[in-house]
């Protein structure tokens, strides 16, 4: 069962982070954001910060799962875990890159 956890954790974290950033983007663009006294120009830094956090978390997971204490006993599962952790990191960077450039609320 812990093997399943090792396999599932990084990508599930990507999914959670991705949905969270999308939700945050919805919040930034909603009228509530302005009502809270935050200007439209604060949106991008907040989103960038969230994306940075998600990427940091993925790097931490990747490093942790390679540590011998947490790594899977079976070499094959260990290999698959690494592949999946790397793909979760790539997915995080790839899907959150738009926060750096695209127009926020149009």
């Amino acid at each position: 069962m812990t093997d399943i956890l090792r396999l599932a954790l990084p990508l599930t974290t990507w999914l959670a982070a991705f949905s969270a950033v999308y939700g945050l983007h919805g919040l930034v663009c909603s009228p509530r954001w302005a009502q809270a006294g935050l200007g439209p120009e604060t949106g991008r830094p907040v989103l960038l910060l969230a994306a940075g956090l998600a990427i940091g978390l993925q790097i931490a997971l990747l490093l942790a799962l390679r540590r011998s204490r947490l790594a899977a006993p079976s070499p094959l599962i260990r290999r698959i875990t690494t592949m999946l952790a790397v793909s979760a990191l790539v997915a995080t960077v790839w899907t959150l890159t738009p926060v750096t450039a695209t127009t926020t609320c149009h």
Binding site: H25, T103, T104
Partner: peptide
Amino acid sequence: IPHMGLAF
């Protein structure tokens, strides 16, 4: 949906 949302 706003363009950034679409971009994700």
